[in-house]
Design a protein around this nucleic acid. Structure first.
Lengths: 335, 335
DNA sequence: CTGTTAGCGCTTTCAT
DNA sequence: ATGAAAGCGCTAACAG
């Protein structure tokens, strides 16, 4: 079932059917109507490959993230999906598994498809990847962190400031031996670490012995493991800032297991505001990141670009929010 | 940069370059070498659209799931990704948001791309969707549930048996007022419900008043809400089987909040064995579903089909496993 | 082993 | 407002 088939059935030429579908206003109303009905009756579905080849522009948005094994990307993806759904575009995901060579391979695979737009995250600082991204001929949004100058467009939050906010909050709650849990090796997490450090160091509260991480995706289990190691090495510890809420929940469970009272004896601050953070006992203090909005907005920016919208901002900062819940609510330090 | 460009540079015809890339053994070694080097130097990337149009077969596997907002699909996706990575194929996801019309729309969009294979879940019982799937011209795997006759291939676990196992376990642990938490409206969950019912009803332990659900994606928060409602309506309740571990964790938190002791006064059995299930306090009894393996295996089946492997099983049952942890370990009923 | 020819289904000119 | 011709980049089929 091709355009030509429909055209034959309608007694017109293929191009007219094409126009009826893509630029309806260029076809006289009654003819257009007849054609669209026929398209529906015959169950004609346009061939994307042919269209892409003819126009040199596919209708896929490519999305490259470092990992899909982290909960946070689910929400970003939801936002992406919801914004794309009413359009003609399709999404293609790839993840680099935190591996630069894989990242490059995936990027090249994408480029072979002439995507209509690209959303990436986690490529910061990878020279070859950045070079590839320089010469994509389509709109590009780098999501998650607004701290670095984007190639085309940037969207996210300021992770340095987020790290500062968490550290400041724990200090304000009266904690004095503040650790860091989870892998801060990635660019974004690293910037949170720097922000964290920038608050504690001047106060003489920063101690590298209080930092524990493992080279895996953040998980609840991992959080419990890290917490156990931290407690053994530094029993004087009285609070942690975690790389993510998974880690924070694991730390909380480990405290429960050991009978350490949270927040009285120990404060926990997570990062992300995952769905369970407001439900756990005690509920987790965390930094809310507008993940869904990030996905939605990233696609929105691509669509705006396609539509030729002018004066688009190069960088959009969606802002974060420190949510003060029970896990840092020390009785004598209520605020 | 097209095939023709490379061909010109190499002083051969386009088809030879094409062969050097796709069927290297058909090109003499030294020529092949020269061509491949040139491909690399010039940074040639094949145009997928052109290839798809010429071969009538794209290199994308289409994956349609009811929702990406559930944690379980992350693991399925990881398996899919890992199995696809070493190949030339690409994955394209879509989710129907539990909506039949959307499901059909997505399916049609997929069909317009001549996918090399399709993986679906959650389409059972949707007449029009099934009709569309009947006539896809490519391998098709229906994942998650093995209970129903697949159109082409099926892969998953038996959800009816899983429901039975959970019910039997709770009974064996000595619980007598056993409720059900979470939305069992979907086909798979519904079959768990039936299995559950098939054990309790004959024992006179089934009570429809013990069933609470809400029409949303399972979440920890939702689990706590449902647990609260259940306790208000049926204070005699002493155990629950939950639609997923998210719900189970929420139920656990709600018990903690109310000072209900788990497992002494109340037993909780989840479903999925999500990463936190072995870490919570108490750790959650649950039914482990081989999610990662399901994704990996589904792609494996598609690849085998492409390779023309014979004698493939129509249905593969990966099996589930009841993991007995603390949340149902009643002191006097240890086993 | 390598080349020629033709065509995949659609859309872009350029006409009418 | 509609149509005819040409071509997007690649590969199947058939030579040689």
């Amino acid at each position: 079932m091709t355009l030509a088939d429909v055209a034959r059935a309608a007694g017109v030429s293929a191009i007219t059917v094409s126009r009826a579908l893509r630029n309806p206003e260029q076809v006289s109303p009654n003819l257009r109507h007849a054609i669209l009905k026929l398209v529906d009756d015959l169950g004609y579905v346009p061939d994307f490959a042919a269209r892409t080849l003819a126009t040199k522009k596919s209708s896929v948005f490519a999305v490259l993230v470092p990992s899909m094994a982290e909960y946070i990307f689910m929400n970003v993806m939801s936002g992406i999906e919801d914004c794309v759904r009413p359009t003609e575009y399709r999404i293609q995901y790839a993840n680099s598994h935190m591996d630069v060579r894989e990242e490059i391979r995936q990027l090249k695979l994408f480029l072979g498809q002439n995507p209509a737009g690209i959303i990436v995250s986690g490529t910061e600082g990878h020279v070859e990847s950045m070079e590839l991204l320089q010469k994509v001929g389509c709109p590009l949004v780098q999501i998650m962190d607004t701290g670095l100058e984007p190639i085309d467009m940037g969207l996210g939050i300021n992770h340095f400031d987020a790290g500062k906010a968490a550290a400041q909050h724990l200090v304000d709650c009266g904690y004095r031996h503040i650790g860091l849990l989870g892998d801060f090796a990635g660019k974004r997490a690293e910037r949170r670490y720097h922000g964290f450090h920038s608050i504690l160091a001047p106060l003489g509260l920063f101690d590298p012995a209080f930092i524990f991480s493992e080279d895996r995706s953040p998980s609840v289990r991992g959080g419990a493991r890290l917490m156990a190691r931290l407690l053994e090495t530094a029993p004087e510890i009285d609070a942690v800032f975690c790389r993510s809420d998974d880690i924070a929940l694991g730390a909380l469970f480990e405290c429960q297991r050991r009978g350490i009272r949270v927040p009285e004896d120990f404060g926990i601050c997570g990062f992300s505001d995952l769905s369970f953070a407001n439900t756990s006992v005690p509920a987790l203090t965390t930094i809310r990141v507008p993940r869904y909005e990030m996905g939605y907005c990233a696609v929105g920016m691509l669509l705006d670009r396609e539509k030729g919208v002018q004066d688009m901002p190069k960088v959009v900062d969606l802002g974060f929010q420190l949510i003060h819940r029970e896990s840092t609510r020390r009785p004598k330090h209520q605020d």
